[in-house]
Amino acid sequence: MSAIRPYRPSDREAVDEICVRTGASGTDATGLYSDDSLLPDIFAEPYLAYQPELAFVVDTGDHVAGYVIGVSDTAAFADWYKREWRAGFAERHPLDTAATDAERELIRYGLSYGDRLVPELGDYPAHLHIDLLPELQGQGFGRRLIRRLLAELEERGVSAVHLGVSATNTSARAFYNRLGFHELPSSTPEGPSLGIATDALI
């Protein structure tokens, strides 16, 4: 029976795989870039390294098939990323070896992470990423994962959380709308930014 539990270091490969298999606006990005580690090296690995206690997974009993990861202080995480993560990322993913324009753009995003934070950070200091394999979607696990993370953040005194969503990922946007996420003032059609209070009843 599938259950939500805290992340363990042994879940790392599964989290990376889920990140890739949902990395193309919710669909499988395997093989989309010359190195499948590129997506998790931006959107999963640094979170697991920085604040693993804010990572939760859905364990089916056979494997991990979903996760939510987050940080409680985005500004502090961005400083850490630039200081501790960026140089290694640049070595692992040289910009001049990018196979496509899309890959080059994604590497540039990884290299510049932390340079462009949402203006509402004072009110929405935390942020999160959530991904579920198709086998878990539509069963309420997304809501339960976010509820678990929100409760953990509220316990730490964090008042609200934000996230970014791809403009082309309409199913994810509908999911967040159902949970009560709202657009932040800085949100744009090309780069939606959403937020929610950690004490929201979702």
Rank of each mutant, 00 (worst) to 15 (best):
S72N: 04
T74P: 15
A75W: 04
A76G: 04
A76Q: 05
F77C: 08
A78G: 10
D79M: 02
D79R: 10
K82G: 15
K82A: 15
E84V: 05
W85G: 05
R86D: 07
R86K: 14
R86F: 11
F89W: 03
E91A: 12
R92P: 04
R92V: 11
R92D: 07
H93I: 03
P94A: 06
D96M: 12
A99I: 12
T100R: 05
T100S: 14
D101A: 13
D101C: 04
D101V: 12
R104C: 07
E105D: 13
I107M: 11
R108H: 03
G110L: 11
G110F: 12
G110A: 09
Y113D: 09
G114K: 07
G114P: 09
D115I: 03
R116M: 06
L117T: 00
L117K: 00
L117V: 09
L117W: 00
V118D: 10
P119V: 13
E120N: 06
L121F: 00
L121P: 01
G122S: 00
G122H: 02
A126P: 12
A126C: 12
A126Q: 09
H127T: 11
H129L: 14
D131W: 10
D131F: 10
L132S: 09
E135C: 15
E135F: 09
L136Q: 12
Q137G: 10
Q137M: 12
Q139T: 09
G140I: 15
F141V: 04
G142D: 01
R144N: 09
L145P: 09
I146D: 06
R147V: 10
R147A: 10
R147C: 08
L149R: 03
A151P: 09
L153H: 04
E154D: 13
E154L: 11
R156Q: 15
S159T: 02
A160H: 02
H162E: 08
L163I: 06
L163E: 06
V165Q: 03
S166Q: 04
A167Q: 04
A167G: 04
T168E: 07
A172V: 03
A174V: 08
N177M: 02
N177I: 00
